[in-house]
Amino acid sequence: MPPRVRKAVIPAAGYGTRFLPVAKAVPKEMLPLVDKPVIQYVVEEAVASGIEDILIIISRSKRPIEEHFHPAFDLETELAAKGRDADLVELRRMQTMARIHFIWQPKMGGLGDAILYAQDHVGNEPFAVLLGDTVVTTNDAKPVTRQLADVVETYGGSAVALQQVPREKVSRYGILGGDEIAPDLIRATSFVEKPKPEEAPSNLAVSARYVLSPRIFDHLRKTPPGKGGELQLTDAMASLMREETLHGLRYDGARHDIGNKLDFIKANIHFGLQRDDIAPALREYLKTLV
């Protein structure tokens, strides 16, 4: 029986150059969706998936992420003095919902390189990977990370979240091909990073969430740099597939990629419309724009 998935790794070290000039001082993971930073949504998904231990990989200028999850006793004292009990409860919940650790990636070398920094923390057990600049929502009661953990805890190996994308856009993503063994569950036979449309094994794109076997570290170390001179996690997973099963899970939901300006604005509108306190006024405003 595969062990339970208890740990998560959140890569959040990238420069975020598409958000310059603000990204020079403010990590893109700290950009707000309404009034909560992107990274908090990601951490909350991990916690809702049963994760107890989270490692966030950061770099220079990412200190605000660390500070966000660190206790702020002076702020707590001020909130208590002003009777802002609801804010105080939320602040303390955020700081205690999981054991959160940080490690630095001193030089950008790709997602695969970032994951390698997590080996000592993860040890010899399966672990989740949640990209720190992407929020994933589902129409299912279970978060995507929990669904992937269920697959790995049942079948072993590794699992990735999948979404269908237009064929002409497959070159933007890691693309998985394989055989459907259960509704929405694919046993992978190929895994390609950003293929040309005519070379793609399918239009099923990896969607920012993974649960990986610890053997991925051996394959990351022996995988040569790929596109852009970076160590690609996809290349290492393609190598791992020769030894262990890789599953892909199509989920019913949406990926909110905060890595570019347009999707960031769309995500704020989406999450704003979920909020009872501002949704009515936001809907009325949106009507004035058409």
Rank of each mutant, 00 (worst) to 15 (best):
R99G: 00
H68A: 02
E90T: 11
H219I: 04
A81P: 15
P32T: 02
P32H: 01
H121G: 01
D277T: 15
A8K: 02
Q147P: 06
P37E: 01
N260Y: 10
I175F: 04
Q119M: 02
D85P: 01
P27Y: 13
P280W: 15
Q274P: 01
T145D: 11
Y117E: 04
T77G: 14
L233V: 07
G174H: 08
I269W: 05
V135D: 00
D85F: 14
V290L: 14
I54R: 08
N203Y: 15
D277E: 10
Q164H: 14
A72G: 05
F73Y: 15
D276Q: 07
I115H: 11
V151S: 00
I39P: 00
A128P: 14
E230T: 04
L231R: 07
S49C: 05
D87T: 01
G112N: 02
A128N: 07
A72R: 14
T245V: 12
V129S: 10
A141M: 14
L111Q: 04
I103P: 08
V206C: 02
A159G: 07
A238Q: 13
I258L: 08
A281P: 11
Q232P: 07
W104I: 03
K24S: 02
I216V: 15
P143C: 04
M30F: 12
D179R: 08
I100K: 07
I269L: 06
F102T: 00
V129M: 11
D184H: 11
L212C: 11
E66G: 03
D218P: 03
M237G: 01
K196C: 06
G83E: 03
Q232V: 09
A23E: 09
F191V: 02
A128G: 14
E199Q: 15
E78H: 14
G156K: 11
